[in-house]
Nucleic acid binder design. Structure first.
Lengths: 338, 338
DNA sequence: CATCGGTTTGGCAGCGCTGCCAACAATTTT
DNA sequence: AAAATTGTTGGCAGCGCTGCCAAACCGATG
């Protein structure tokens, strides 16, 4: 049982109406700047609301007003993780743009688990959000059913490799992997390895690897080795994995990492062993995290437009345009490690 | 039996009641497992709800139940930034623990701006959250008024250096700074400098510096130099700042950074210059970010219990205990850079 | 002074749900 | 067999707000 610091009822629109000597509807009109009202009524309402410390109850507002039509002014957001700065970046873009338009963000974290996503979608829908933002294109059948029945805008962000439900904003992870391989091949590397984290869960990383391998195949090459670690991406995992990989297949001349934090760990591994980068081994990451630009040798990686993705999601959601995919692309960050 | 629904309208409890051949209250009772109902009624309701794809409307539920009972099942969270992994970590602890108890998190980011925090508090309160979680102890007078009037649980997290409004969960930033200085002094460093970011905005960092300087004073020392950069903490800022600092006051033998990411940037600076750490200059950070544990020389820093803070906030919020401060402390992460 | 277009206003019916209560059914007790 | 007990059930009044509508009001016009 929650202890209330101050007892009693909160101030309602009826209280304000009484205090201002007007009707409830007038208060509502004044407070939302909707419809017409006299200057005098406006002043009295504003004064009374301020004096009483009125805070509108959007729960009630949403129930009454938009029940059938629009939505509640809440936008549900589901991301797979908060541990990898990539997702807070998306969130940053989203909340920044959403705030401006008066929407609040309700977030859920599904730990890369589709079942968990399903539960979160159901939970979020119960708040009758104006829209839902999901990460990636892969969802359970039940999730899709829920989403379809909800009748609201859906955005799937980050990944454009496949059909979306409504609006899709991101970039092609396959193309990122492909371009990364092209870059490494262009630099003359031939014994390429992959170091990554849990591919069964991080499907975007899996798509990047698929694109990477496809590009290799086009050049008559194939992946020389791979080292996968359990669990999420991290510098520690990247360091340990590169360590194991190089012990096992020392002839590897370039490594593609699933993520910049993995690659940073790899770089630390090289520093620890005294290996020169990129001569002993070249390193290539993904996402261009801020940190990796400050390395003594800036990491060679792909800059993905995470903030813009978030921002664009918010815009499309509120703009009311047609469904479709927005590909925001990516950009080589040349660096000095590959 | 086929139920005809008006297109556009979502399934309501009344639809389920009709389909199951029971009353609305029975549906409500079954769906929430509240009160008593027969096994048969339970089955029919569950079947009908599943068949129709019923998703409860918590907006309506909260409105109805809110009068006496406590809150909407929404918890508002305000953090200063998403760019620094410290705050996503807090969020992770919070949402993780909140999810389990059926609460949803509504988040706001105030960019270290108290005015913005005030606006966010007002906005969040309009959703009648069951509780509000803020970062730090410093708020505008208007924010405090709003918070007091809201009559809900308030948690202020991360900082325990001062009086809180209700529940406070965190650690003493002053003590962190103090202990960091003690460590450096104990190691024999005497020409200590500080490298930090915008202190006017990040008040916790300012408190750490105050504690640091206090410890120096106790040992008859004082800060030998300081280098402050505009804007938020980042590796790039740390690198640039250490660079500038060492050019200006090369005799410095140890540097205390406002944050681990700044310290990481400092380490990169040293690597770039070929300075041995800690012999040429010792580095000490704050927060023990995962990344810094994987450095060739693990960073010397203070581990702050961010996940636990988030988790504890969630627990206290839902537990209904008395107001008070929970100091979760911190821990030296000895590392090899100081 | 009655009439008229326009503006301003308050009352009231919901929005979907829950809590309460009275009614009813299914037991058990006497 | 009647009474007392326990277990179920549906109806209905709100929760605070908004949208709609008819009424009241305004100055200006004929």
């Amino acid at each position: 049982m929650t202890i209330h610091l101050t007892p009693g009822r909160l101030v309602t629109i009826a209280d304000v109406a009484r205090a201002a000597g007007v009707g409830e509807s007038t208060v509502s009109r004044v407070l939302r700047g909707h419809g017409s009202f006299s200057k005098k009524a406006g002043e009295r309402v504003l004064e009374a609301a301020a004096r009483l410390g009125y805070v509108p109850n959007r729960l009630a507002g949403s129930l009454a007003g938009n029940a059938a039509s629009g939505g509640s002014g809440l936008v549900g957001i589901i991301i797979p993780s908060l541990a990898n700065i990539v997702f807070p970046d998306l969130l940053r873009g989203l909340t920044g743009a959403l705030d401006v338009t008066g929407f609040q963000s309700v977030i859920g974290v599904n730990d890369y688990d589709p079942e968990r996503e399903e539960a979160l979608v159901a939970g979020l829908l119960s708040w009758r959000p104006a829209a839902l933002v999901l990460t990636g294109l892969e969802h359970t059948a039940a999730t899709v059913t829920l989403l379809r029945a909800a009748g609201i805008r859906i955005v799937e962000m980050i990944d454009t490799d496949g059909p979306g439900l409504d609006i899709v904003v991101g970039f092609s992870n396959r193309a990122v992997g492909h371009a990364s391989a092209r870059h490494l091949i262009g630099r003359g590397y031939r014994r390429l390895a992959y170091v990554g984290h849990d591919l069964g869960r991080d499907l975007r990383a899996a798509k990047r690897l698929a694109g990477f391998e496809a590009a290799l195949a086009e050049s008559g090459l194939s992946l020389h080795a791979r080292e996968l670690v359990e669990g999420p991406s991290s510098a520690a995992a990247g360091r340990a994995a590169l360590d194991a990989l190089m012990a096992r297949v020392p002839e590897v001349d370039a490594v593609y990492f699933s993520n910049d934090d993995m690659a940073l760990g790899g770089y630390f591994c090289c520093l620890g062993h005294g290996w020169t980068v990129p001569d002993r081994v070249a390193l290539f990451g993904c996402h261009a995290l801020d940190i990796t630009a400050s390395m003594p040798q800036p990491l060679s990686t792909m800059r993905t437009p995470r903030l813009e993705i978030g921002r664009t999601c918010a815009e499309r959601l509120t703009a009311g345009g047609p469904p479709g995919t927005v590909d925001l692309g990516f950009e080589l960050s040349e660096g000095a490690t590959a």
